[in-house]
Design a protein around this nucleic acid. Structure first.
Ligand SMILES: [Mn+2]
Ligand SMILES: [Mn+2]
Ligand SMILES: [Zn+2]
Ligand SMILES: [Zn+2]
Lengths: 154, 154
DNA sequence: ACAGTAATTGAAAATGGTTATCAATATCAA
DNA sequence: TTGATATTGATAACCATTTTCAATTACTGT
């Protein structure tokens, strides 16, 4: 009888091993940042992540968080978005899956969507203009159901 | 016999009268900025417009160009976009017509497109998530036909 | 385990696009 | 023309992000 132990690697572990596989050094700071980033959910700004990491790693430097986020982004392990709130937000990239965003301008809530039909039309439009598409950004701004009920800032 | 003289008001004139109609004062600087903006074509950055205006109005201040662009934007007379080149770009708004953009990352060329089908799907997606859409941004990045042939920056 | 070397770190300064401040000047209604 | 108010230009401030640099740390080979 074979005991099948499934070793499910977490996002944090995948990212960490991917980094060391690319020749980057493993450091306590980097590990903390990646682990907390993976656990915290999506669309974090550098500042937000810095605040979270500081709890586990009080001496962490601001620059280190920025540097790590940029490193992840340039390595393709994270994806950055600039919505309309003034700073860059990051999310770990689920391999191969692209998605776009609906953003509530009332509470900041972000919903993700994928639509194959839109992507197809998009390709057709690009082709008509003889463009080779490398990436795109499709953001829908509005109010979520709960913010539609609340009074808006005057 | 009636001689029909068609008084076609230019974009610049429409914007200027719209501003004074809203109670803003008419100034030489504002007039120059609007006139040159209207004549220069689309998607200008504040810096680019400043450089153009300086030729006609050598004493113009940087802040005045920024202020006027913001004024136009807040009055709905201009529309601002933040593409991925780091600064805000403006274009005079053709009343009522929305469009999105295809941007060449090689040469900066910007092509505009409208697609009713995409807008419809977008609304359906928002409705499914109980969102009230206020605006959206759809940008396609890639290489134009001419930049596909040229060697890329390494 | 140890040394050598190159990468990484944290603090602080720098950067760069944009906005605020403020005294001087210009606009416009009365 | 006058006077209240808006606008201007120079400059400083703002603020997210990047750079700098000396000190520390991680890895490679021994
Ligand atoms: Mn997302
Ligand atoms: Mn446009
Ligand atoms: Zn909301
Ligand atoms: Zn091009």
């Amino acid at each position: 009888m074979v005991i099948n132990i499934k070793l499910k690697s977490t996002s944090a572990e995948r990212v960490a091993s991917s980094l060391s596989g690319r020749g980057f050094k493993t450091t306590r700071q980097r590990d903390s940042i990646v682990r907390i980033f993976a656990a915290a959910g999506q669309h974090l700004s550098a500042e937000e992540l810095y605040e979270l990491v500081k709890k586990a790693e009080p001496g962490i430097g601001y620059a280190t968080v920025y540097r790590t986020l940029r490193l992840l982004s340039e390595s393709g392990l994270a994806h950055e978005s600039r919505f309309e709130d003034g700073f860059t937000r990051y999310e770990l990239s689920d391999s191969g899956s692209h998605h776009d965003h609906i953003i509530c301008t009332g509470c900041g809530q972000i919903i993700e969507f994928e639509n194959h039909e839109i992507e197809k039309i998009q390709q057709a439009i690009a082709r008509k203009h003889h463009f080779l598409v490398t990436n795109h950004k499709h953001e829908i701004y509005g109010l979520c159901s709960s913010c539609q009920r609340k009074p808006q800032k005057e």
